Computed example of a mutant assay.
Amino acid sequence: MTARPIAHRGLHGEGLAENTLTAVEAAIEAGYGVEVDLRLTADGGLVMIHDAMLERTTFRAGRVLDHTLDELRAVAVRGCDETLSSVTDLLALTSGRAALFIELKAPPGEAAKAAMTAAIGRALAGYGGAAAVMTFDVDLLAMLRAALPDTPLGILAGGEAKAASLVNRFGRDMLLHLPRTRADFVAYFATALPHPGPWLARRKRPVLAWTVRSRAEARRVAPYADQIIFEGFAA
Rank of each mutant, 00 (worst) to 15 (best):
A106G: 10
F136P: 05
A74W: 02
R56G: 04
L91K: 10
R73N: 11
M134T: 07
G62D: 01
A114L: 07
L90I: 11
I49K: 01
P107N: 06
D66F: 06
M48D: 07
D66E: 14
M134H: 15
K113F: 03
T135A: 09
A115H: 04
P149S: 13
A74I: 06
A74L: 14
L65T: 00
R97D: 13
G128I: 10
A52D: 10
L124P: 00
S86C: 10
A52W: 07
L148Q: 07
G96Q: 13
C80M: 12
G126T: 06
M134E: 14
E110P: 11
D89V: 07
L93W: 12
A123I: 04
V75Q: 00
R78V: 14
A98C: 11
T94F: 04
E71P: 06
H67L: 07
D81C: 12
L91I: 11
E103T: 06
A142L: 05
L90N: 07
H50V: 01
L72I: 00
A106L: 04
G109N: 08
L84C: 01
A119R: 01
A112W: 03
F59A: 14
R73C: 11
L144K: 06
G96I: 15
A115P: 01
I120K: 02
A74N: 03
A99W: 12
L144T: 04
E55G: 04
A106C: 10
T88N: 12
M116G: 01
G109K: 07
R122Q: 12
G129N: 13
L148N: 07
L84K: 01
D66H: 11
H67N: 08
S95F: 11
G79Y: 08
V133N: 02
K105D: 04
A146Y: 05
L100E: 09
G121S: 09
K113D: 00
D51E: 07
G126A: 14
A52C: 02
L72A: 00
L104R: 02
V77E: 03
G109A: 05
G128Q: 14
A125D: 05
E82K: 14
A99V: 11
L54I: 00
V64K: 00
M143D: 00
L69C: 04
T57I: 02
A106Y: 05
C80V: 12
A115N: 03
E110I: 11
D137P: 08
R97I: 12
K113L: 03
S95C: 13
A76R: 15
L100W: 04
T135W: 09
K105N: 03
S95P: 05
M48N: 15
G126V: 05
R73T: 14
S95Q: 15
R63N: 03
R78D: 09
F59M: 06
A147K: 07
V77H: 05
L91R: 10
T88G: 15
T88E: 15
T117P: 02
A76M: 12
E110F: 06
A98M: 11
V133T: 09
R63W: 03
L91P: 06
G62F: 00
M134R: 13
R145D: 05
L93T: 07
G126W: 02
R145I: 04
M134N: 13
M134V: 09
M116D: 00
G128R: 15
T135V: 14
L93E: 12
F136E: 09
T83R: 08
A118R: 08
A130Y: 12
R97G: 10
G109M: 09
R78T: 13
A111G: 08
M116K: 01
G96N: 13
